[in-house]
Structures are given as structure tokens and as C-alpha cells.
Design a protein around this nucleic acid. Structure first.
Lengths: 133, 133
DNA sequence: AACTCTTGCGTTATGTTATAACGAAATATA
DNA sequence: TATATTTCGTTATAACATAACGCAAGAGTT
């Protein structure tokens, strides 16, 4: 098992890394159409599934879209801050918040497996721009 | 302006309150089909938009689904804990977590408007069941 | 009541996101 | 070579969501 899926996966990852916003699967599809004219959705979704599993890509649930992981340590949950103005998505780490959260829910007997924390708002750049205008 | 949209909204809310899991818009549609045989997606989505805006319904982003708010105070963001086993969704309040989050991101200049916190895992009931078996 | 204005609803159509199913090609193992 | 396994392309379709438009209900004015 070598290099079979990896070509497409690295292409997908490259597309995401060059994007300045989250991309939908169909956005990725479109970006890859130049190089692979006959590419179809399942190919993209399969690549995304593999990349997501290994942590190099995150799904942004509230946008039905995907971003490249910007952390070197892929083995963590992240906080996504999403600018509703320019579409940029930043990743932050804050282990203590995840701990607080697991602790809080643990008290009710809930066993947390996966945390989704996404914060919508306006990023620093867009906020400055608004002030200036 | 009276009672025009409200009939459908209260029907939708009733459906969600009686469900033991989050329902998709199309799930709601199906549930209402008995009473309104000709109902179409936009009707459901419009009702959901109104209910969501007033806080009596929450959208669960990671499920593309909706739940009735179980708090009396609708004016708050919630933490959703989602059991991946039985599908139940519980709502918790934890203002300090939202404050921590806004504070953390505020340091980078991000202005938080809307928080999405959804935790997937296994609820107490399903956990107990697994232990017993 | 008659008129008009606004709002939101039903309806049709379509856009967007995601996956099932299957056969063919590549790789691995024997 | 034979066989098993995996992944891929392909076709089709499922699931989620909204644009656009015309009609009809409710509110305000005369």
C-alpha cells in the first residue's frame, strides 16, 4: 500500500494551503479540474477523509468546508475563528478550554470524544478596516 | 402582523419538542406531511429561520439538524453535547467558557459574534448500557 | 367597506453538499 | 501466474438549502 491515494491527497492539501479561506469540497474540485479534467466528487471526498483522519485538514462544520491545518502538531483539537467578513479561518490551541469542557460534561456522565469549537466574528484586519473607513 | 407565520412555526417547534434527537429540515418536513400534504422545503426553512432567530430552536451545525431549545432563557449561546450512539442532544450553559473563548480570541483582535460549541461523544445512558452488556 | 401597502407564504425550480454502488486497474502475496 | 486487497474513476442519486415569483393575508388609511 504505497502512493496510491497520496498523489491526490497532496494535491488537495496543496489547494487548501494556497487558499485564503475555507473551501468546500466542490471548490476544491473546481480548483483541481484544470489538472484533472474528469475528477468527480467522490475522489475529492475520499482525499479529504484521509487528510482529515490524519489531522492535516480540518472540516469547518459551520461552513461545510475544509481548511489546511496550520499547526505542526496535528494531534489536537482546535478552535476555529472564522471571519464572516473576509472568510479567513484561524486555528488556535487552548487545551484548558477543552479540558474545562470535558470536565463540565463529564459531571453529567457524558464522555466527550470530539470537540467542535467554531467562533464566528470579525478578524483583526477586517475590524481595523471598518474603523478606518 | 398576527398568526400568519406563527401557525407553521408552532407546528415545527412542536415536532422538534417531541423528537428525541435532532431532526433535519427534511425530517421535519416528513413529520408535517401528514397534516400538510403539500408542504415544501422553503416553508420549513422559513419557519426554522424565525424560530432560530428568536432562540427557541438551535441549529446543530455538525449534524445539519435542528433541536428545540430546552432553556427558558433563550438569550444565550449553548454547549451542545451530542451522543453519537443514540443521537440525543443536550444543551448546557457555561457562560465562563464563552467568556474565556471571547477573551482568548480578543487578544488577537478577533471580535467574536457567535459561538458554536458542539461536543460529540457518548451520553450517560448509552455509556451505562455499554458497561452492563 | 374599499383601497393600498407591506409582508410572508406556497410553489416551482434549482443550487449545493455528500455518498452509494460497482467495475477496472494497481499493488501485494503466494 | 493466480488470488486477494485496495483504491480509484464513474455513474447515479441522496440529502441539505435557497432563489424567484406571484398571490393572498393582515394592517393602516380614507
Amino acid at each position: 500500500m504505497r502512493t496510491r491515494g497520496e498523489v491526490m491527497q497532496s494535491k488537495i492539501l496543496a489547494v487548501l494551503k494556497h487558499a485564503d479561506a475555507a473551501l468546500s469540497a466542490y471548490g476544491i474540485l473546481e480548483a483541481l479540474r484544470d489538472e484533472f479534467p474528469k475528477i468527480a466528487p467522490p475522489t475529492v471526498y475520499r482525499g479529504l477523509a484521509a487528510l482529515t483522519e490524519q489531522g492535516s485538514v480540518h472540516r469547518v462544520e459551520s461552513l461545510n468546508s475544509f481548511v489546511a491545518c496550520t499547526n505542526h502538531n496535528h494531534d489536537h483539537a482546535s478552535i476555529m475563528s472564522i471571519c464572516d467578513d473576509c472568510g479567513s479561518v484561524e486555528e488556535s490551541e487552548a487545551p484548558e478550554i477543552f479540558d474545562d469542557l470535558s470536565g463540565l460534561l463529564g459531571k453529567t456522565g457524558f464522555d466527550a470524544h470530539r470537540h467542535v469549537i467554531e467562533v464566528h466574528g470579525v478578524c483583526a484586519a477586517c475590524g481595523d478596516q471598518d474603523n478606518a473607513s
